[in-house]
Design a protein around this nucleic acid. Structure first.
Lengths: 251, 251
DNA sequence: CAGTGGTCTAGACCACTAT
DNA sequence: TAGTGGTCTAGACCACTGA
């Protein structure tokens, strides 16, 4: 439970991780106030600036929120964009009462990715799998995913059902997604995709191509998402980076 | 040029602004190294932690990049998502050699926004305007924009042509966009929209509805973007918030 | 090797919130 | 008024980069 000053991992990072898991495990539930900065500093025998550095990380992750004069609080559900799917969207639907169920259509198999100028893994070995998500009994999202075979050694032996793939990448491979490039186009569904999505062939659907970048490995994951926007509206929230917001308003 | 310790604006924020304008004005061009942290601290008579706090802001804005042992450098063009349009996309096309031209289709006029559950300004007064963007001579993006009339008092008297609307909001109204919610659907173009986009009526297009939130004013801007993805692929980059990245790799 | 950013301490004063 | 977060100082040691 204590922090290790000898560890190569900085103290503020250790503390951030500690607080993060306490929040996830419910010790500090949503809306709760975490111990004050001086308290944490005393408790862990570190300086207050180091405590702030740790909570800074979590504030930027939108897990914590500071209220001057009052305390630091655990914030409402993250509502983050999940870079591995449109799961951010789907999760928000779950909350609104519409359950979303995701099933594996095709288990992970290793293959050589064929040539495709838009596919960052083209010509390399990858694990490929296909998932289908349903809401209100209707299929709404078909995902084709490719994972760099070297980076994700042994992916086929992991159980993927019902697990967040970004969580999996983090826990099993110590990879954290940093950035994703994606683009949007309207296309007509191919016959096989249409069948899975239960629509007529050539029905226009939303096609999103997404490339996920990790700090240690750019372009390690690629995904094609096909969305039935007649059944589910796909949403996201964008945050403008930068200013944590100064205390005073400008004159 | 000096910092003012009496100002209600924090020192680190003043310094961040100073550095930001020097970068914009070309004093520190792309790729250049800015003065070291100790140098800046000496030059402005402040502590090094305060200098770091200032450059932290710019690092999060992706304007600066730190290289340990070497220095802090001005980073390649921002490539940010412009919350007022798909201009991030369009700008990147500009760089790739495809010029994009935007014209006002309908000048700003004040109106009462009709009822619409998806329109955050419904029932309130707003400035409404319409823009059309072309690439390679073909229309690719039709934007309907609504600005809260109270927040954007006098918007009709400003010249909007060729100006970034987020720059305008910042310069004239001291509003900086913080967050945007948006959703994506495939729809069939209405007759009037189809005419402007030079496509057949009922052609499927991408419809993006976006609500822009400011620190001081949530939901002050709303936009409907209609995109011809057959001509231009709409792209964006998402950044995972959080970790600035610790120094050491984990064991 | 000198200089850089990365981390950390031990204080300090302030504006603000809750009571 | 006591406690909170917001800002700031003046140091320190370290790992790393580049000449």
């Amino acid at each position: 439970m204590a922090l290790n000053a000898q560890s190569p991992l900085p103290l503020y990072h250790q503390l951030a991780g500690l607080l993060r898991s306490r929040i996830r495990e419910g010790e500090y539930p949503t809306g709760a106030r975490i111990p004050s900065e001086p308290e944490l500093a005393r408790a862990y025998g570190i300086g207050r600036p180091t405590v702030r550095q740790a909570t800074d990380v979590l504030v930027r992750e939108r897990l914590l929120e500071r209220r001057r004069g009052s305390g630091t609080y655990v914030v409402e559900p993250p509502e983050r964009v999940d870079l591995f799917s449109l799961a951010g969207t789907l999760a928000s639907f779950e909350r609104s009462g519409v359950p979303v169920r995701t099933a594996i259509v095709q288990r992970a198999r290793r293959l050589r990715v064929p040539d495709d100028p838009e596919h960052p893994l083209a010509g390399r070995d990858a694990w490929a799998l296909v998932r289908l998500s349903r809401a209100r009994g209707k299929p709404v999202l078909l995902e084709h995913l490719w994972f760099d075979a070297e980076r994700f050694e042994g992916l086929d032996r992991l159980s993927l059902a019902g697990r967040s793939l970004s969580q999996l990448a983090h826990d099993h491979y110590h990879l954290s997604a940093e950035r994703a490039d994606q683009n949007f186009r309207v296309t007509e569904a191919q016959a096989d995709h249409a069948a899975l999505l239960e629509i007529a062939p050539a029905t226009p659907i939303l096609l999103v191509k997404r490339s996920v970048h990790f700090r240690q490995a750019p372009d390690a994951v690629f995904a094609e998402l096909r969305c039935r926007t007649d059944q589910l509206v796909f949403a996201q929230t964008l945050y403008q980076d930068g200013d944590p917001g100064p205390e005073a308003s400008h004159a």
